[in-house]
Design a protein around this nucleic acid. Structure first.
Lengths: 221, 221
DNA sequence: CGGGATCCGTTACGATACTG
DNA sequence: CAGTATCGTAACGGATCCCG
């Protein structure tokens, strides 16, 4: 709510946009869905944002009760509250819609891969069987995430996993054709990525879950 | 894409926001989900928007392929394309999130009730059995909508229905407590609204669908 | 050096007035 | 009725500076 430029309508959509509709707000939330982050982590994931804007948005989101600040000074971290986590379906649907749109001519490279976490976790949760339990590390362009599915819930947070049973290693840009449906996930695993079992666990259920999640993102399920 | 201030990122969320993230864009789409509308209809549903902004947004949304213009001059109408209709899940999730937030102190009254259509239709579709067929007129604050559920799909468009089998008549503001869960839908029908069968059709399935849809909006399902 | 705050030129927004 | 034109104001974006 910067400068109190509010829609002030009865409609819940307008109310939501009063809190998350400002420029950068949803992208900041997107990054925070990958776990707590420092100011500079967020800067790295949001190419083009001005420092004052990031500050202002973090203040706004905190005032709205969606973000909390842990600590102060050098090691301060921002994390989502429960209300902030409730934005996941919004981000997920934005992601599905965005997948239908043509890619921009000159994409800027973000400095990290945090942005994939929301989309992939939410998509996987749409198709995860309630009786499936998976722990796996996902490494994208060298950046590790810990992926956990359990009782129909899926989370994906930035950071290496302790003793992961499974590990997917690949490049973010090579997932694009899989999402678009022009390359099958099986072919992707053959040619462009690796999926290893580190303790003998069967990798097939995890692979199937990823394949279905990418179908969801691509709008094929 | 006003002034081409684009996020230009690889992330599909950023790509989506490049097309629908500008101020007013999602609220314009929201109104158009209730059916084609003239310029002045949209102005009435968007209190506070400036005329030049509405013009500019309609141009942007048309350029993005989400909106089409029918006719020219006095009777021109704007309508959603298939791509524009694909924004419904985004609006629906925004609506569910907005329902969790405190209502603004001084809500401005919009000049029409078009904004309810997306939310109610999307919510009803979440719970509509595939074998349920319902045609009903919904009149909110005197404004009629035609509500149709069939084969698991639900639509709700502004405008009176031809020979409706059922008719719900009520006030928008009195639905708030039902969404919030403080008043049951049954009590709402008893005290605050009317539900009539105009040709002997059983109103119960329609009532049950509405009740469940309001639960969905309120986050209880 | 990370985590911001300050300053300033540019861009978008919002209100009103005006035109076909 | 359906917009366009104008203009003051507010927000954004980049750079620089400050503070621990």
């Amino acid at each position: 709510m910067p400068g109190h430029r509010s829609y002030a309508l009865l409609c819940p959509i307008a109310r939501a946009l009063d809190h998350v509709g400002d420029r950068w707000s949803l992208l900041i939330l997107r990054d925070l869905h990958a776990g707590p982050a420092r100011y500079s982590d967020l800067m790295a994931g949001l190419p083009g944002i001005a420092a004052n804007l990031l500050s202002a948005r973090l203040v706004d989101l905190t005032a709205s009760g969606m973000v909390e600040k842990d600590g102060a000074g050098r090691g301060a971290r921002y994390r989502l509250t429960d209300l902030g986590r409730a934005t996941r379906p919004i981000l997920f649907e934005l992601s599905r819609f965005g997948a239908r749109l043509p890619a921009p001519a000159e994409p800027v490279e973000p400095g990290n891969r945090r942005h994939v976490a929301v989309t992939l976790a939410a998509a996987a949760e749409r198709v995860a069987p309630a009786d499936l339990s998976v722990r796996a590390e996902i490494v994208l362009d060298g950046q590790p995430f810990s992926f956990v599915a359990s009782r129909g819930r899926v989370s994906m947070e930035e950071g290496a996993m302790l003793a992961p049973p499974l590990r997917y290693t690949g490049r973010y840009d090579l997932l694009g054709p899989v999402v678009a449906g022009t390359v099958s996930f099986a072919d992707h695993l053959d040619r462009d990525a690796t999926l290893e079992s580190l303790d003998g666990t069967d990798a097939a259920p995890f692979a199937a879950l990823l394949a279905e999640a990418l179908d969801v993102i691509g709008g094929r399920r």
